[in-house]
Write a protein that binds this DNA or RNA. Structure first.
Lengths: 129, 129
DNA sequence: CTGTATCCGGCCAGATACTG
DNA sequence: CAGTATCTGGCCGGATACAG
């Protein structure tokens, strides 16, 4: 069967792709990658993360951390003391995600300038439309 | 210098990370990956893409394609005929992006069920909060 | 067939204030 | 210190209608 017309039979492929997307949506938001990136090397406390990720609000940091905890990408440890001390640590699962992301990061590094150039060229040649 | 306090000196690292994010935001939206995924094997016309990507609206398909064209991830070819015929083809750049994404897709495949289980467990153990 | 133009409802992130 | 509660404005995506 060489080159089927449209290959409408692979609805399943698209379904699988959507399931992947559901997972990848994990990291598609604005802050998640920055947060787990900061946790790559070491455990950090809430306040440390808040300072480390420039511009994030308390609300968004909390939300991001909760979701990552729910997905099992990091662990949240509460030390019952005064003042309270909460530490966040990347799990093995989170660490492997970061590893997989490195390929994409490498692609971005390699092609960032090319993309910027492409955009400039497009904007220059299409501004008259 | 073993284990610096917070390592606030690597603001630059975060800057680079943000530049990466700026690029990765390309594919962080709802439709981009589905569209370029459909173009992996072959050139497709607008209408073919519209049917191939289930649920996408004309507006969103057009927007997605325009952005991908601007970034140089695909080419848009207009065949002057009646009715008009517009074909979209992945560029080398777009193809390499898809290759880099495959590592993430593999991670998603490997860990999807684990994550689903993690969520169930979290929801079960935290519903009383 | 391949788009563009317009309206519009929902969601999400930011700001702010408050709490154990 | 580590959050939660509430309000709000803006953006994004879908629906619809129209055009070359």
């Amino acid at each position: 069967m060489p080159v089927p017309p449209i290959d409408t039979a692979d609805e399943s492929e698209q379904e699988i792709c959507r399931q992947h997307l559901q997972i990848l949506a994990l990291i598609g938001d604005k802050w998640t990658i920055l947060v787990i990136g900061r946790l790559r090397d070491r455990t950090l406390r809430f306040g440390e993360l808040h300072r480390a990720v420039t511009g994030i609000s308390q609300r968004m940091l909390t939300r991001t951390l909760r979701q990552l905890e729910r997905d099992g990408l990091l662990t949240r440890t509460v030390h019952p003391s005064v003042p309270p001390r909460v530490e966040y640590t990347l799990t093995e699962l989170g660490s492997t995600l970061l590893d997989s992301l490195s390929y994409l990061a490498e692609w971005a590094t390699t092609n960032r300038q090319q993309i910027t150039a492409n955009r400039r060229h497009y904007d220059a040649t299409h501004q008259g439309d």
